[in-house]
Amino acid sequence: MRRTSFARWPCSIARTMDLLGDWWTPLVLREAFYGIKRFDEFQQELGIARNTLSERLRRLVDEGLLEKRQYDSFPVRYDYVLTEKGRDFFGVLAAMSRWGDKWLAGEEGPPVTMHHDRCGHDCHAEVVCSVCGEPLKSAETSKRLGPGYPPKLAERPDVQRRFAR
Rank of each mutant, 00 (worst) to 15 (best):
T25K: 05
A49I: 06
E55P: 00
F33D: 02
R8Q: 14
Q43R: 12
D72V: 00
D18Q: 01
L93V: 00
T113A: 12
S130A: 10
G86V: 03
S73W: 05
R2F: 08
W99M: 11
E55S: 13
D22T: 04
A94R: 12
R15T: 03
R38Q: 15
T16S: 13
D72K: 09
T4N: 03
S97E: 14
M17N: 13
S73E: 13
Q43M: 03
C123W: 10
E107D: 11
N51T: 12
M96E: 12
L136W: 03
L136Y: 03
R15W: 07
N51Q: 13
V28S: 00
F6E: 06
V131H: 15
Q44Y: 08
E84P: 04
L19F: 10
D72H: 08
T16K: 08
K85T: 00
D40L: 04
V127H: 05
H116D: 15
R3W: 07
L65P: 08
R38E: 13
R2Q: 09
L136N: 02
D88W: 00
W23R: 14
M114L: 15
T25N: 03
V81F: 09
K102C: 06
G100E: 15
L57M: 11
T52F: 02
K68I: 02
F42I: 01
E126T: 03
V76L: 09
R3T: 08
P111A: 05
P135G: 00
W99I: 13
E41I: 02
R8S: 14
G106K: 08
P111E: 13
R58N: 14
P26T: 00
F90R: 08
K102L: 14
R58M: 07
A7L: 05
L46T: 04
G86H: 09
K68M: 14
L57T: 04
F33C: 04
E55C: 07
K68E: 15
T25F: 01
F89W: 07
K102G: 03
V131W: 12
T16V: 09
D22Q: 08
R69E: 10
W23Y: 12
H121A: 13
R59H: 12
S12V: 01
C119L: 08
